[in-house]
Amino acid sequence: MATFFGEVLSVYSRAVEEDDDDDLTQNEEDEEIRREIEEKRSVCVQWMSQTDKRSVSCSHLIIAVGLNATGFTSAYVLSCGGWSAVGRVSLWNERSHSSSRTDAAPAPGQPACVLYQQEHNPSVMMCVCTCYVAEDQLFQWAEEVLGCVQKRALTVTVLSDCVLAEYKASDYLSGNSTPFLRALKTATYTGAVACPLLEQPNIITGLSAAVLSHCQVHQIPAVVYQCYSDVTHPDSVTMETYKAALTGVSAAVKMNLCPTSDILQKFTRASDVQSNLYT
């Protein structure tokens, strides 16, 4: 397809190819293989202690998705202490092998999806997701995570990352206006929103969209803060942008407003330049 400006783009068709195999009757073996794959790809929440955590009631759930958002929660919130890991979401797909359903917890630094609980106020929970969740697992992820806690006036806050190239605006955005936050909220969310709402025709996809859709149809108050950044690797300036997003829950969540550079470095180290022409 050629665009208005003449460049040729290879577009994939949203219409799934007509699959004639689909019309053929499937045999039992196919059916079994399909069932096994589906089972392997299922998402489930595993609690670390033996006690049944289903009785845990939750009033605030903060979900961080993407390297900047998870870096922010780790450096600014979890580093304050007072949080303990209570469970994890186990899933398997072509890009997340390590978090398959084994009893062993993933090694530190490995991509994973961990649930934390605040020690002095157990109704505040946080989910830090650094692993890849495939498109077909997003719906189930939202169902499992939001279904695993008892909702007691629950409010969900989602922090997520997005690249600036995805953001559409009629005015050209210069580099010095980034990073910035945009929010989306469900109909039942009545709290204050810390930044402008996401303008049409922009949309969100992925895990944050799955969680927000789940909350919208089940009438759970929820808000998504999406940070648009033009830096490809996690960086401290982008992480700092999320500080505004957590002001709404500042009563429940204590933040370390100025983490030391040692802490920050741990979450931005990945962006070290390996080698280029000049170094």
């Binding site: 989306l184 909220k185 109909a187 996809t205």
Partner: peptide, 25 residues
């Protein structure tokens, strides 16, 4: 679960008041 999740604000907004209604896939 058969559709890819997506969310955005009201695609048919006529004024600033109804622009913040969430829409799904």
């Amino acid at each position: 679960d058969c559709l890819i999740p997506m969310a955005g604000n009201n695609p048919y907004a006529t004024c600033a008041e109804d622009a913040s209604q969430l829409s799904t896939n």
